[in-house]
Nucleic acid binder design. Structure first.
Lengths: 216, 216
DNA sequence: CACAGTGAGATTGTTGACAATATTGCCGGT
DNA sequence: ACCGGCAATATTGTCAACAATCTCACTGTG
């Protein structure tokens, strides 16, 4: 029963890049990756190509693969699209959520509030991801979910620096509460609006970060 | 000075699939494709993997690649997302269009009207694609444009069967005229609304086609 | 006659080696 | 000391052969 190495290696490499173990614009030397992941160059190359198609790495002819560097400007573009997609998911979730789904969402925001009160930034960030994932699952929109995953992976570095901004969670917590309230009340339009204004505030935060960075 | 075969082969294969030369669920035997495109198996495989990442073909372990079959239900999901993305592009185009851009758009709809009057279905379909591409270029939103291309490629077969529906162009022509009018008037919200209702009618047409097909 | 087992042929998955290209460090001229 | 060219090395791009797996017709048995 031989394993299926390619998806496993692809996932491992994706995780490593998302964890920041390889910096943007850093060259990904195939031999080194082979050693690290215990795979042949062919498998590695396949994995790199898949990640390239998803926008996580980029190829330069005869110069191999690098981690793609997503600029602030591009992160804003990506978030503009996320507004639309996550808005759609929120609306559909409001139409489809079962009692059990709603209970789960409420538990998540409750935990988020607790995390904020205890200043557990990392836990808050984790719960935040879980909440968005839960909404995505409830909405059951395969196409939107797939695209969102791509976009989210590309901006994970920026998401991270955002979560470190002091007071950021205090801003986003009530927004998440509003989203869950609208979904629980089965109000699609309101859920969509709440999600949109939430991500709009993310864009504003990006702009502020970008301005601060260029001042240095 | 050796050429760069991989992108060329990828494009050729994509074009062939989009042109319907390979039917959905048809197996893509690597040797045959090698012969047709004059490339080695390695290059072919790379091309197939890239197209797989873009959702045009799918792999089954030890059974190779097939043309991916996009169901009506999935085509509707995809169009739901297209509504959002193309709506965004229409709004941005309305904000950014220059005089020359507007002149080009107007020429396109004028040609479309002529094509409808002369019952040139193929030409109308071609101009339709050009119009959407022009709006995309004016909007200058790289992220949305990239995603849209993927989605469009996946539904090209359904788009085609739609264009054969009698009277379809008579429905969509005034919608296109409304979109261009809103962009020319620099009215982003109105342009977005016009584009959305246009694609809503596409979904309705899909639903009608789907119902007709299941009746057989 | 139906059906499970089997084996040949076809097709894909993987590997290692080779060729093409870029990168780096060295050397000589000015 | 500085700069441009050149050789050595490192890295990627490509290929052809091999191994693993699936497909399918054939065969022998109940």
């Amino acid at each position: 029963m031989p394993e299926d190495p390619k998806p496993a290696v692809t996932e491992a490499l994706r995780t490593a890049i998302l964890a920041g173990e390889y910096a943007p614009r850093q060259r990904l030397v195939e031999i080194d990756l082979c050693e690290r992941f215990g795979a042949s160059r062919f498998i590695l190359r396949s994995a790199l190509q898949e990640l390239a198609a998803q926008g996580l790495v980029e190829f330069q002819r005869n110069r191999g693969a690098r981690v793609r560097d997503v600029s602030f400007a591009e992160a804003i573009e990506i978030t503009e699209v996320r507004i639309l997609l996550e808005g759609l998911l929120a609306a559909r979730a409001a139409e489809r959520a079962s009692k059990a789904d709603i209970a789960m969402l409420r538990k998540l925001v409750k935990d988020m509030r607790a995390a904020v009160n205890n200043s557990e930034l990392l836990r808050y960030s984790e719960l935040n991801a879980q909440l968005h994932a839960a909404i995505r699952d409830i909405a059951a929109h395969e196409t939107a979910a797939r695209l969102l995953r791509q976009l989210r992976d590309q901006t994970v570095r920026h998401q991270f620096s955002l979560s470190l901004v002091p007071g950021r969670s205090a801003v986003s917590l009530p927004q998440h509460e509003a989203i869950v309230a609208a979904i629980s009340a089965c109000e699609p339009e309101q859920a969509e609006r709440a999600m949109r204004s939430h991500l709009h505030s993310v864009i504003e935060a990006f702009r502020a970060l970008s301005a601060a960075a260029t001042q240095l």
